[in-house]
Design a protein around this nucleic acid. Structure first.
Length: 271
DNA sequence: CCGGACGCCTGTCGGC
DNA sequence: TGCCGACAGGCGTCCG
């Protein structure tokens, strides 16, 4: 379930429970995630305090007294804070055991997630180095999107899903933002005006903010059981609604594959 | 450099 | 009911 809003929600929920606690151990039960968890990770983190937890793109960064853990949830990863006594179940691949009696447990059935450790500044890590703008910070606006799109023939949907351009916009939010902005998902990125990119940038921010807000209400307690999101289901405009009526004009929403990802849009409202 | 395809995994769902 | 293919919220890599 992890898109930027969920990672952000996870961050906000977890942070107060993590910052200042000491890592007693990293327990790895399944090392084969997207990248094998480095053998050095366990030894590197044990005994160190968590100074801070931050988010960059969809990565959670656990800054320890020594080095940083980079955690990515992939397609199916989820985090829970549980008592260290609770036995792990299937797909609970690792625990970060804390001196508070809790442990941070990663479950990831598809194993597209990742846990890496670096001693260097996290931003310099190869996986973070080339990332584009954070959509919710200054610097991300229509002009930025417009400039980087110059001459590009890629469809706008995969363009805004490209993390070298802007991070955190996954398949759902790309679809939603394009509908909100009235832009056809397969329109060439380089053939959109700066003015329309302003609308798009605003739509991306709005959609992400709304989702964070709603995610916040359904995922508020990470010490509890799971907290399945299920959040925006109700407020989705197009995603997963192929064949159903557009909430704007009442017309039938159309589905199409763009760049190997399913896309839904309104042929009337989106041009 | 760019755009598009591929593959990594497991779980679920719809159709037959 | 059971089987099978399609598909799933990501993303790095490879190829032309």
């Amino acid at each position: 379930m992890p898109e930027l809003p969920e990672v952000e929600t996870a961050l906000r929920g977890l942070r107060p429970h993590l910052v200042g606690t000491r890592v007693l151990a990293l327990v790895v039960r399944e090392r084969r995630l997207r990248y094998p968890i480095p053998l050095a990770a366990e030894a590197a983190v044990a005994g160190h305090r968590i100074r801070d937890v931050r988010r960059r793109a969809k990565y959670l960064l656990f800054e320890l007294e020594q080095g940083t853990l980079l955690l990515h949830l992939g397609m199916s990863g989820s985090l829970r804070l549980v008592s260290a006594r609770i036995p792990p179940t299937r797909h609970d691949h690792l625990d970060l055991v804390l001196d508070s009696g809790l442990c941070l447990r990663l479950r990831d059935p598809r194993r597209f997630g990742a846990l890496l450790w670096t001693d260097a500044p996290a931003e310099a890590h190869p996986l973070l180095r080339d990332l584009g703008c954070e959509p919710l910070t200054a610097g991300f606006d229509g002009r930025y999107l417009y400039r980087l799109a110059t001459g590009r023939r890629i469809a706008v949907k995969p363009y805004i899903m490209d993390s070298r351009i802007v991070v955190g916009v996954g398949n759902i939010y790309a679809s939603e933002a394009l509908h909100l902005a009235g832009i056809h998902p397969s329109r060439a990125a380089g053939r959109i005006s700066e003015r329309r990119y302003q609308r798009l940038a605003g739509a991306i921010r709005q959609v992400l903010r709304d989702a964070i807000q709603q995610g916040g209400t359904s995922l508020r307690d990470f010490v509890q059981e799971d907290g399945e999101p299920g959040y925006f289901r109700q407020s989705l405009r197009v995603y997963g609604r192929q064949g159903q009526p557009c909430r704007g004009c009442g017309g039938v929403l159309r589905g199409q594959r763009i760049g190997q990802r399913s896309s839904v849009y309104c042929p009337r409202c989106q041009r």
